[in-house]
């Protein structure tokens, strides 16, 4: 089962991504806006709306990983079981990738939609701040030596608690809204399926990467232990 986890989720993600690509580019209608007199016009999104499906799916995973890392870090500090720490670390590593994708695709979207590559638009700012926390976490992990796991766990927990404050701080905005009357709720019939499929397939992708990364971290730990054993046995100088 453990051996199968990565290939299985990765395969699911691959199938899901292929189907959602087809849905997005062939099946889903173009995004038409409405003029004030209720006639159709080509809104600023239009074909660019195709970025939305993957961009938002990545953003979901970015936000989710902050909470995954936070809760796993709490569990780690409570139980001192390094397995929790491995999951937190892996989730953050993968989330750094997802955050990078969110920021890059977001700013590519911003160019045609708002005319600049970057405006300090609230949700973009929020993604950037969370991403910075996660990058800080990976830096701490790398360079904090023996107490890296504790310091990083603390950072993940503080970051998680800070999310509502960051959310409150950035306030409301020009970005396509989320929530009950947001973009997701107003997606057309051909769009909703494509959107949720891409969210699910990127979740699978995220899980596959995290599990893979956890295995890698565990292998690194095993290597450290082996090295110690080898030093004791005189194999290594």
């Amino acid at each position: 089962m453990k051996r199968l986890a990565v290939p299985l989720t990765a395969a699911l993600a691959a199938i899901g991504m292929t189907v959602s690509l087809w849905l997005i580019f062939v099946n889903a209608p173009l995004q038409w806006g409405k003029n004030s007199n209720d006639t159709l016009n080509m809104s600023s999104l239009f074909f660019n709306q195709k970025i939305f499906y993957f961009h938002v799916a990545h953003a979901f995973m970015l936000f989710a990983s902050v909470f995954v890392a936070g809760t796993c870090s709490i569990a780690f500090l409570k139980t001192r079981n390094a397995r929790w720490d491995d999951i937190a670390c892996a989730a953050v590593n993968v989330a750094v990738l997802f955050g990078a994708v969110v920021l890059v695709t977001g700013s590519i979207w911003a160019k045609p939609a708002w005319g600049t590559w970057w405006n300090w638009e609230p949700r973009l700012t929020m993604s950037l701040l969370l991403w910075l926390i996660l990058v800080g976490y990976t830096l701490v992990r790398q360079f904090a030596g023996a107490s890296a796991d504790r310091v990083a766990a603390g950072m993940a927990i503080f970051g998680m608690v800070g999310v509502p404050f960051i959310y409150k701080m950035v306030g409301s905005d020009s970005h396509p809204a989320s929530g009950a009357n947001g973009v997701v709720a107003t997606l057309g019939p051909g769009m909703k399926g494509a959107f949720w499929l891409s969210v699910v397939s990127f979740m699978c992708w995220f899980i596959a990467l995290v599990v893979f990364r956890v295995q890698s971290i565990r292998a690194a730990r095993e290597l450290r232990e082996l090295r110690e054993a080898a030093l004791d046995a005189g194999v290594l100088e």
Partner: peptide, 27 residues
């Protein structure tokens, strides 16, 4: 309009895949 947008969509998807692939290769 699609042609005008296309550049950005291609860029976005390319960026996404390139970043992911680099990440996977490194891992």
């Amino acid at each position: 309009k699609v042609a005008e947008n296309e550049r950005h969509v291609i860029l976005a998807y390319a960026a996404m895949w390139i970043l992911s692939i680099i990440f996977v290769i490194v891992l």
